[in-house]
């Protein structure tokens, strides 16, 4: 049981900040087992990211830089991670449960027939070395307590924002080992043709604050221009762009939406929060014109502070909210944006 591995996810040659949360969780396990905490970094800029990992608590780093790793593809990543696990038998392998983190750890756990528990929201190392975690199941209506087998490597993916990063120490250094890739380009069945990055928007799952709009975005008092293909859709889109987005911007927040808003074509699906959208857990969630259906709650119920703005005092969202504002969102949201600009000095 040589180490605790933490996969540091990167995008365009930069570490995702959420990876430092995984190092934070990894430290707890490494300390309990008395083994080093090792950052696993593949791809562009791996050496520089390994150094950053040191500042975030990693004792060691295993890096591999090769063109096959650029722009994540599962095959080369899983092949190398599985080899490292088979060769070195780490006590645990952790990653944040992003799209890439989930598929990488699942694949490697399958390759090595190891224990795998995903979406952990808390963890505890038992006396026998087994890692016990809690995780939400049934769309967050129930908590499951699950435990891995301490006989082999225990793979864990973590819910974003559920674990704290280690305090940063710029002077701390990770001892770096460089390893070669396992697969050559010819062995890889997939090829990335292009990536269209969503620029200028805050990622929902990482966001500390989220401002969400519902079906009520269509109740924009503005008149749609004569040329608009669909007046309702125009009003709702204008509301997202010119009423909700300015509030999100003063707060540095991400913009979310209910399924009703997405299905009506007011905003792309990538913004949907809920059972069939994204599950988020920000410090502050502001629901504007969202009734609070159980399927929406499934995606935002664990937010720390929930604010509901709704014209119907009986809306179910108020049962979940810490602060409730009854009224027209098209009056309250601009007032809130103005007040925040003033108070936050922006």
């Amino acid at each position: 049981m040589s180490a605790v591995y933490v996969w540091i996810e990167t995008f365009n040659g930069k570490a995702l900040n959420s990876s430092w949360e995984a190092l934070g969780a990894g430290k707890t396990i490494a300390a309990a087992a008395g083994v080093p905490l090792t950052a696993i970094v593949f791809g562009e800029n791996a050496a520089a990211i390994a150094a950053e990992s040191g500042a975030h608590g990693a004792d060691k780093a295993i890096v591999s830089e090769d063109a096959t790793f650029n722009g994540f593809r599962l095959e080369p990543y899983a092949a190398l991670l599985s080899k490292l696990v088979s060769d070195n038998k780490p006590k645990a392998v952790l990653a944040i449960g992003t799209a890439r983190g989930r598929e990488l750890l699942s694949a490697s756990a399958a390759d090595t027939d190891s224990s795998l528990i995903t979406e952990a929201t808390s963890l505890e190392v038992q006396a026998d070395g087994a890692i016990k975690v809690t995780r939400p199941v049934y769309a967050g209506k129930i908590i499951s307590e699950a435990v891995g087998s301490s006989a082999g490597t225990q793979f864990l993916t973590l819910r974003g924002r559920a674990f704290k990063p280690n305090p940063e120490n710029a002077a701390a250094k990770a001892e770096v080992t460089t390893v070669p890739p396992v697969l050559a380009e010819a062995d890889i069945a997939t090829k990335i043709e292009s990536f269209e990055e969503e620029v200028g928007t805050v990622n929902l799952t990482d966001a500390a604050i989220i401002v969400s709009g519902g079906r009520a975005m269509a109740n924009n008092p503005k008149d749609a221009p004569a040329g608009a293909a669909d007046a309702t859709v125009w009003k709702a889109q204008d509301g997202f762009d010119n009423t909700l987005k300015p509030l999100a911007d003063v707060l540095g927040a991400a913009v979310g939406a209910s399924r009703a808003a997405v299905d009506a074509g007011y905003i792309p699906y990538a913004h949907q929060v809920g059972q069939t959208g994204k599950v988020v857990s920000p410090d502050l969630y502001i629901a504007c014109g969202i009734s609070g259906a159980i399927q929406h709650q499934a995606g935002m119920r664990t937010s720390k502070v929930i604010v509901a703005i709704n014209k119907d005092a009986e809306a179910p969202i108020f049962k979940l909210a810490r602060y409730g504002l009854v009224g027209d969102l098209y009056q309250i949201v601009p007032a809130l944006t103005a007040e925040l600009k003033k108070r936050l000095g922006k």
Partner: peptide
Amino acid sequence: QSQVVQFQNLPVRNVQVEM
């Protein structure tokens, strides 16, 4: 390689909404 130890109901959410 892994097993569920037990299921738990959600902790009661002690939020009192302030209107």
